[in-house]
Amino acid sequence: MNTINISFKLNGKDMKMEIKPQLLLLDMLREELGLTGTKNGCGEGDCGACTVLFDGKPICSCLALAVNADGHEITTVEGLGSEEKLDPLQQAFIDEGAVQCGFCTPGMLLSAKALLNKNNDPSDAEIKRAISGNLCRCTGYTKIVKAIKKAAKMKEV
């Protein structure tokens, strides 16, 4: 079978992969690279659990082909923060009780990250719009919005 060589930046590191042309970005991350922080909730771009950043913009990795990553930069939840140093968003999600089952959390964090990267003082309405593609069934979004607002302030400090 044909394979394609791609090179891209993943969570700040240069990567080279030999992949099948039809491989989905989500499957490359989860199955080939073991980055299981990115979740598969529907496989059809409806739920946003698989959201990753593509050159800083949130996309559904279940709808993207891995070959599209060639020459670009991908950020997953694993690249957001670490055990030792959490991203302010991750800390705010913990502090505000914005995490329940956690399945939407990685995607939610990345959509929020993309927002805060371009707007460090978002209104509630802007936050709600930014995460409107990420479904959460547990929290009613209230504490998630609060956490994102808090993280924006933490960033300024």
Binding site: G37, T76, T105
Partner: peptide
Amino acid sequence: KSVKKIDAKEKVLGTALYAADIK
């Protein structure tokens, strides 16, 4: 007291293992 959820950290890090994550 509103103590922090004990499973929240692994969930924000993406390290919590859901069944589909196990190989």
